Amino acid sequence: MSSIDIRRRHSRSQKEARAAVERIAKHIAEKFDVEYGWNGSVLDFSRAGVDGHIALEKDEIHVYARLGLFLGMLKGPIEAEIHRYLDEEFA
């Protein structure tokens, strides 16, 4: 089983960072057909073959995903897409 583990520092307020993470989640949900929901300051997401979270901390975003066998073969493109969304929202 493959995993993606990305940490990115940010300097936004919690409100701004949460809105940015929400936009990222919507993009990911549309592109990869995942379901997601907030649990406090953690956005949990899942679908067949992947589950994970985006944890929103005071000055850091932590993205973690466990990929099943099929999606594990696509780890590189999926990880690149997540980095692209993070760059767009937090650069």
Rank of each mutant, 00 (worst) to 15 (best):
M1E: 09
M1P: 04
M1H: 07
M1D: 06
S2K: 09
S2E: 11
S3V: 04
S3H: 08
S3P: 00
I4Q: 01
I4P: 06
D5A: 03
D5I: 00
I6S: 01
R7S: 08
R7C: 03
R8W: 03
R8E: 01
R9K: 13
S11L: 02
S11F: 04
S11K: 13
R12S: 02
R12Y: 01
R12A: 09
R12F: 06
R12G: 05
S13A: 13
S13W: 10
Q14K: 11
K15C: 06
E16L: 07
R18I: 05
A19P: 01
A19F: 08
A20S: 14
V21L: 08
E22W: 02
E22Q: 12
R23S: 15
I24G: 08
I24M: 14
A25R: 08
A25I: 00
K26H: 14
K26L: 11
K26M: 11
K26C: 08
K26N: 13
H27D: 15
A29C: 06
A29T: 10
A29W: 07
E30N: 10
E30P: 07
E30F: 12
K31R: 15
K31E: 14
F32M: 10
D33N: 15
D33L: 13
E35W: 05
E35P: 00
Y36N: 15
Y36V: 01
G37D: 10
N39I: 02
G40C: 04
G40A: 05
V42P: 04
V42R: 14
V42Q: 15
L43T: 01
D44T: 12
D44A: 07
F45V: 01
F45S: 06
S46T: 05
A48V: 14
A48C: 10
A48P: 06
G49N: 12
G49D: 15
G49V: 13
G49P: 11
V50P: 04
V50I: 15
D51G: 12
D51K: 13
G52P: 11
H53E: 12
I54T: 07
A55E: 14
A55F: 01
A55T: 03
A55M: 03
E57P: 02
E57G: 10
E57T: 09
K58M: 08
D59H: 11
E60A: 15
E60W: 10
I61N: 09
H62M: 06
H62G: 03
Y64R: 10
Y64N: 04
A65D: 05
R66I: 10
G68N: 04
L69K: 14
L71E: 05
G72V: 01
M73P: 12
M73W: 11
M73N: 09
M73Y: 07
L74E: 02
L74T: 11
L74W: 02
K75L: 06
G76Q: 04
P77A: 03
P77W: 02
I78S: 06
I78G: 00
I78L: 14
E79F: 00
E79M: 00
E79Y: 00
E81S: 04
I82N: 05
I82Y: 01
I82T: 02
H83Y: 08
Y85N: 09
Y85R: 04
L86W: 07
L86T: 01
E88R: 12
E88G: 00
E89H: 03
